[in-house]
């Protein structure tokens, strides 16, 4: 446990000593402000937005999630570029311990941000427990996103290109909100679809058990697959 904590604390130090990464940590505050004070008057003024209220919440949740996706991606790419990754290949730390350490804080922090988001948003009445469940599911995007990019990108430049592409992939299932009900699950190939649908079901007062369960399984499988790929490529 000491190993995990030391590495997690080191990660926080690295983030807060890097001005470009540090600035990202303050973005959620802006997001909270927009959801609390920006969206309600907007919807009040433009009535046509009312059917898409849940979409605002979906975007807010995924943007919260993407903050640590970006920070952790850059931190790990930096580690690869500076060859520190090689050092982790020759220390008595299993690759599973390494991955767990690297994602413990980003995951918990992302869960916390989304729990706050569900609590402070004035758009829907969502129970605290449901908020926690969806936040836990949504935060699983972080390891999948970061491990995937770090398995294929060799340097910061490539990393930035993949970040752009992955940000688009993460948001594509939003399209499901604009298509007929019977074809919306065509977007289920994109893992974030299951998070979006969970949120939509909750905001519409429907049961989210099935979509939440499928999402959880999809993310667990993806984490396992991307971890294997990452382990093969990161430490050499």
């Amino acid at each position: 446990m000491n190993k995990t904590l030391k590495l997690s604390v080191a990660d926080i130090k690295i983030i807060f000593r890097d001005p470009s990464l540090k600035s990202f940590v303050f973005l959620p505050i802006l997001l909270f402000a927009l959801i609390i004070w920006g969206v309600p008057p907007l919807v009040e003024k433009y009535d046509l937005l009312t059917p898409y209220l849940s979409l605002f919440l979906v975007v807010a949740v995924i943007e919260n999630t993407q903050m640590f996706c970006f920070i952790s991606t850059m931190a790990l790419i930096d580690e690869k570029e500076t060859d520190i990754a090689k050092v982790y290949g020759v220390v008595p730390l299993t690759k599973t311990e390494y991955i767990f350490s690297r994602f413990l804080i980003p995951y918990l922090f992302t869960v916390l941000l989304n729990v706050i988001m569900f609590t402070v948003q004035p758009l829907f009445e969502i129970s605290f427990g449901t908020g926690i469940l969806i936040s836990c599911l949504a935060a699983l995007v972080v390891p999948v996103y970061v491990l995937s990019i770090n398995s294929i990108a060799q340097n910061r430049m490539q990393g930035m290109v993949y970040v752009k592409a992955f940000n688009m992939l993460v948001l594509i299932p939003i399209t499901a909100f604009f298509v007929p009900e019977n074809i919306k699950h065509l977007f289920s190939v994109f893992p974030t679809h299951w998070i979006f649908q969970s949120i939509e079901n909750v905001t519409m007062g429907k049961d989210m058990t099935l979509v939440f369960g499928v999402g959880l399984v999809v993310f667990i499988i993806l984490i396992w697959l991307t971890s294997r790929l990452f382990i093969k490529r990161h430490f050499v």
Binding site: K13, T82, V87
Partner: peptide
């Protein structure tokens, strides 16, 4: 190959903890 934003001591402490 070190964490550039950590001090020399922090770098050694981190890897020693493993």
């Amino acid at each position: 190959n070190h964490y550039l934003r950590l001090t020399g001591k922090e770098n050694l402490d981190l890897f020693a903890s493993f």
